[in-house]
Design a protein around this nucleic acid. Structure first.
Length: 226
DNA sequence: TGCCAGGCCGGGT
DNA sequence: ACCCGGCATGGC
């Protein structure tokens, strides 16, 4: 109904402006972040799994090991013994469980898309998201990272920093779910791959520098004191 | 030295 | 529907 849409459009635009204002401030302070730090869609997907609750520097070491051994491909990972895979990705931590998760992902990729990320990217975005979420070891953030950074799909990625920053600025409670945060962006902003890409990366950047779990450096934060 | 990092799963309430 | 323990390395 038209009346309903009019009523909803008011707070929606307020929130849109608020989110865009935050984006502009972050972009003005930090500039373009150039994410994802990975060469190919497949490398991005592997990185998305390896970086679960893990420092990116450690992930780079793990990916470096795979590259050095020429094992950074769906086929190679699929055919490699799980133990061997685990030892190569050891620097990323949680290496046993992550070896399983990578195996699950490449099994899906090979079975459904002949191991081709390009082919996977042609699938319907929403159906693909559900498929990714059904893979054991791929949750909402990992799925959305693969979609946005690996396949250029307009989905907003939520992470711990996004939650913390928005929470501290009173935009949304930390206790809200991943889907709550995701809806906030999808309802407020027009789908825009470029914007979503930079925005999430900027949340990580400002989070790392000014919004750690303890002793947040709010005074120097470009978003101001929260 | 301890704390933390770009989560997710499985079992229990 | 939440809540919690487990998973593990490397850098500061």
């Amino acid at each position: 109904m038209a009346g309903n849409a009019t009523v909803r459009s008011f707070p929606k635009n307020i929130m849109k402006n608020r989110l865009l204002d935050i984006y502009k401030r972050l972009y003005a302070s930090f500039g373009p972040q150039g994410w994802w730090p990975g060469d190919t869609p497949f490398e991005i997907a592997v990185g998305a799994i390896l970086t679960q609750n893990t420092n990116w520097g450690n992930v780079e070491k793990a990916i470096g090991n795979l590259k050095k051994e020429k094992k950074l491909s769906s086929r190679a990972i699929h055919e490699m013994p799980e133990k061997r895979l685990a030892s190569l990705i050891k620097p990323a931590g949680y290496y046993n469980i992550k070896a399983k998760r990578l195996k699950h992902f490449v099994s899906f990729l090979i079975k459904k898309y002949k191991g081709s990320m390009k082919a996977m990217g042609k699938a319907d975005m929403h159906a693909l998201r559900e498929s990714l979420l059904n893979i054991n070891g791929i949750g909402p953030e990992t799925a959305d990272s693969i979609l946005l950074y690996g396949l250029d799909k307009p989905v907003f990625v939520i992470d711990a920093y996004t939650r913390r920053v928005l929470g501290r600025h009173g935009i949304m409670g930390h206790d809200k779910t991943y889907e709550d945060f995701r809806r906030l962006f999808h309802f407020s902003l027009k789908p825009d791959v470029r914007l979503f890409n930079e925005y999430h990366a900027l949340f990580v950047r400002v989070g790392k520098e000014y919004c750690k779990s303890k002793d947040p450096l709010c005074r120097e934060c470009p978003l101001g004191v929260s």
